[in-house]
Simulated scan of single mutants.
Amino acid sequence: MNQVVEQIQGWYRNERELSNYSIMDVGDKLKYLAEKGLIWILKDMKDNTEFEKIVIDSFLNKYRANQVYDNLNAHFDLKPSNQTPQPNSYEIPQKDLHFQDKKQQFLEIRDVKKFSGYQKAKELEEKIFDLCRNFPSYEYNIVDQIGRSANSIKKSIEIAEQIYVREKFKNYSDAIGSAKETSAWLEISVKQQYISQNQFEELDNLVKQVVSILTRTMSNIIKKEGEEKELPNPYTPDVRNFTAYEEALILVEKVYEMTSVQEFRKEKDIVYRMRKYATSCVANIAEAHQLYILKKFSFFNEALMALSRVDSLLQTCLTRQIVTEKAITEIKKLIVTIRKILLKTMGNMSKQK
């Protein structure tokens, strides 16, 4: 890859993390690169979120005539800048392009298998895989998703064992999000009586232990490296204190209850999709409770999309006279309530720096 391309991608990743994934700051950086003709360089970055992909495509289309693909060194001055960058008016500082040269950015790599957080995550994954063997055959969506989320915790912790502080935080954040998602699937499972209360409490406690270990590890890194201003607060809120999450769990129960009646016995596809989207709403709300604002925004947006799909399927059921308007009144009220809470939360997040 062209050296300048690598430098610009590295600069953007650094800027993104320094802003704690603030939507407004990330948007400013993307617009700046679009105006300078460099936005195309970010398009194929594998770690782009869905939000970034949408914004990059939008700016690439709007500023397509600005893009420069050849002889980048001749077109752009990458000299160091001692001034604080301002949106749409700064040059890319060389010191930021080589941010990994900062001494405090390097950590010692250890054997991840000896890390207690990894050990707990591995234990959790094994117990969940064993537990899922007893789920009803028709609940392959829950079995698949809870298995994926449990595996993702372990994988993210493995990837986090590297020298870069910010990359460690990013992957720990992903692991925490997956842990909270796993807990959500467990809560759905116990409410549907696929697992016992004791099984739920045992596995949920393991999830909490993983999150606690990762949080404590990040907190210690901040204290040791002295980067409080550059790294996100490692403490995440309890999703069970978030009203939208509790309402979404009720939505799942109501959807399961409604689709269990005789009228739905011949509508297996609708039943599957409605339950899938209702449970997806819960899982995405849970996974949004991690460190970075951009990631939170992305998962809340996925939850909104899942709500819209449930709403659309309800209309299909009405049209085909599978249900009556009265039968879905409570579910529709829940959808409206959850949507309002999520939109308000996202609005408040977009104002944060």
Rank of each mutant, 00 (worst) to 15 (best):
E50G: 03
I163Q: 14
I328P: 00
S183G: 09
T345R: 12
K95M: 07
V336L: 12
H289T: 08
E246L: 14
L318Y: 11
S183D: 15
E108T: 12
S178Q: 09
W185G: 00
I41S: 01
D57M: 03
S178W: 07
T337W: 04
A286D: 06
A278L: 08
F129C: 07
P234V: 10
Q262A: 12
I341C: 00
K113S: 04
E253N: 04
N66R: 14
A278R: 06
Q145K: 15
Q86K: 13
E202H: 06
L72W: 06
S116G: 00
Q209Y: 02
L307S: 08
P85W: 07
L203E: 06
M258T: 01
K351D: 04
Y69Q: 06
V112Q: 05
F106Y: 07
N141Y: 15
I221S: 02
Y292T: 03
N301R: 10
S152F: 14
R110C: 04
L60W: 08
L314K: 03
I128T: 05
D111E: 11
D111M: 02
K223V: 06
N198Q: 12
K53H: 04
V207G: 09
V336I: 12
K326A: 04
Y138L: 06
Q321H: 12
K43S: 12
V310N: 06
E125L: 13
A121G: 11
F299A: 03
N61L: 09
A121F: 08
E126C: 05
A121S: 14
A288L: 05
I293V: 11
K155R: 14
E161S: 03
L343V: 11
L231Q: 02
I92V: 10
N88W: 03
A244M: 04
K326I: 05
L206A: 07
Y256R: 07
E325K: 08
C317I: 02
R275G: 05
T243V: 09
E246Q: 15
A303G: 03
F300C: 00
A306Q: 05
I293A: 09
N134E: 13
M346E: 08
A160E: 00
A248Y: 01
L72Q: 05
A244Y: 01
E158K: 08
Y140W: 11
V55T: 11
N198T: 10
V239P: 09
I331Q: 01
F169I: 02
L343Y: 10
V282M: 03
F169Y: 11
G117M: 03
K191V: 00
M346G: 00
E50F: 07
K344Q: 14
Q105M: 06
I146K: 05
Y140P: 00
W11R: 07
Y245S: 05
L60M: 13
Y235V: 15
V5S: 07
F51H: 10
S58E: 13
R240N: 15
N2P: 04
I328L: 02
S137N: 13
Q83V: 05
S219R: 11
D57R: 12
E158G: 00
L60E: 09
I176T: 13
K29I: 08
Q145M: 14
R320A: 09
S196Y: 11
D269M: 14
K208A: 10
S173F: 01
I338V: 13
Y194M: 14
A244P: 00
K79M: 07
K62Y: 09
L78T: 03
K326S: 10
K180L: 13
Y32Q: 11
N14Y: 15
Y272G: 02
S152V: 12
K127Q: 15
D144I: 05
